[in-house]
Amino acid sequence: MITRPTTAQLLGAVRTEIAERIAPAISDPQLATSLHMIDHILSTLMVRADHELGWMVEEMNAVQAVATRVAESALPGAVHVADALTEFVSARSGSAHAADVTEDYNRASEVLSRAVEATSAETGELRESVLALLAGRLAHEESVIGDFQLVGRG
């Protein structure tokens, strides 16, 4: 395996070529918009290549820890969290391949969703822990999209 330069560095080289040599030669505004989109997508891929698998594993571990506490609580929705948690733990592949981690992460997302729902009426530490999981997930998503702005129609 060649690991240096990294995937992100290779994508960076593509972005540089687009920005410095291809974009200046483009006069068609639609193509220029396409290039802008391509550059943004490449920027997100740079972050994902560097961090995506690690972040998913970290998030899954954090979800499992907090969801275990929710599942063991007396909250009305605890049993639903426990069911999803059992499925997540028993089906977790242990593989580091992206497709397998993504499947594991999807099951962890269901666990988190049920924990969000089970604690919705709570105001204490457990609820804050669940919301912190959402905040952590959002922080990773924000790191991926960077300064992306969604501009709608006028």
């Binding site: 989109m37 997508i41 959002l138 991926v144 702005q149 969604l150």
Partner: peptide, 19 residues
């Protein structure tokens, strides 16, 4: 479609708005 690929970032953008 390229625009759809680009708008994957819009999903995260709206997550931020709702939260």
């Amino acid at each position: 479609v390229l625009t759809t690929a680009y708008l994957v970032s819009a999903e995260s953008f709206t997550h931020r708005l709702w939260m």
